[in-house]
């Protein structure tokens, strides 16, 4: 059943519509919500929504509970190739829990929270941005790690990044829902403006695996669910550009590198000069890699996870 959760009038003959697909099993009251499209340029979640809806509609008899799919929390952004909410300055994922007395988008944020609150689990799917490609991973705020990491391990991703509680994260959808005791996992995978089918298929398998553990799914589950690496078992190393120029990559994404390996070169095409050889400072796995070639000083090039040496 398609339900419109938000309908707000736009200036000329159009309503801003946020819709969800409610898929009910034959029995069961547990509710799982899949949300994506907060940033209009992050599209990896589109395939996950499609594939999940397709499989669930075909196999409702195996579903115990309710799955709600929200493919576009920022429909104007998705439909107009804009990361942000058109006509509004602030990042939509920095204004939660919203404000019913605020501007249109703050009202919408508040209504989204009201709609999601009370779900047994929410999965918020992101895909970095156009600049960076991410290995399939779940990001968990350290404040809620004890509760969420066991669920995150079920999602068939490669990595779980438990990160510090930076203040701005307080205004994200996930943090706001977790504060309201609605368990919410943030998945990051792939790259902006693209769909990586392999990653989408893996996450769909992971969601069915999670549903099985929640007692919501009685169908088959992929036998080879990945056991993810946990960031707390090592260290995340950030690599930023020291020079402005064009990146010529030397490695592909998600590979294991050794300390001193060449990751990429930053070059000056005008003069035919290499401005920086970017070398790995550690042994580890490249779980984030720049995909957009133009960089300024400071642009993030890669994140490498370096596991602690086991004795």
């Amino acid at each position: 059943m398609i339900k419109t959760i938000i309908s707000e009038g736009l200036p000329v003959d159009e309503n801003l519509l946020i819709r969800k697909n409610i898929i009910r099993g034959k029995s069961g009251k547990k509710r799982l919500c899949i949300v994506t499209g907060t940033h209009g340029d992050e599209l990896e979640g589109q395939y996950v929504c499609f594939e999940l809806a397709r499989q669930l509609e075909k196999n409702r008899d195996l579903l115990h509970g309710i799955v709600e799919i929200y493919p576009a929390l920022n429909p104007l952004g998705v439909d107009s190739v804009q990361r942000g909410f058109p006509t509004f300055d602030l990042d939509m994922n920095r204004i939660f829990p919203g404000d019913q007395n605020g501007h249109l988008i703050e009202t919408i944020a508040s209504s989204i929270i009201q709609d999601l609150e009370g779900a047994d689990m929410v999965i918020d799917i992101h895909s970095s941005n156009i600049f960076l490609r991410e290995m399939p991973q779940v990001r968990v705020n350290i404040e809620s790690a004890d509760t969420l990491v066991p669920y995150a391990k079920l999602l068939n991703t490669d990595f779980i990044w438990v990160h510090d509680a930076a203040t701005v994260l307080q205004a994200t959808l996930a943090h706001s829902l977790n504060t309201l005791n609605t368990k919410t996992l943030v998945v990051e995978m792939g790259v902006g403006m693209r769909i990586t089918r392999e990653y989408g298929d893996r996450l769909v398998e992971g969601i069915f695996n999670l549903m099985t553990h929640l007692g919501m799914w009685q169908g088959a589950v992929a036998p080879d669910i990945t056991t993810p690496t946990l960031s707390t078992d090592g260290e995340v190393c950030f690599m930023n550009a020291d020079a402005s120029g064009i990146i010529i990559p030397s490695i592909s994404h998600s590979v294991t590198v050794k300390k001193g390996d060449l990751l990429c070169q930053i070059v000056d095409p005008l003069r035919g000069k290499v401005l920086q050889n970017v070398l790995s400072p550690v042994d580890g796995v490249v779980f984030t890699l720049r995909s957009y070639p133009v960089v300024y000083e400071g642009s993030l090039i890669a994140r490498i996870f370096s596991e602690k040496q086991r004795l």
């Binding site: 707000e8 009038g9 736009l10 200036p11 000329v12 801003l16 006509t87 605020g102 501007h103 249109l104 009202t107």
Partner: peptide, 8 residues
């Protein structure tokens, strides 16, 4: 001049 619903 153009406003959406719920605009301040």
């Amino acid at each position: 001049p153009l406003i959406a619903q719920n605009t301040v």
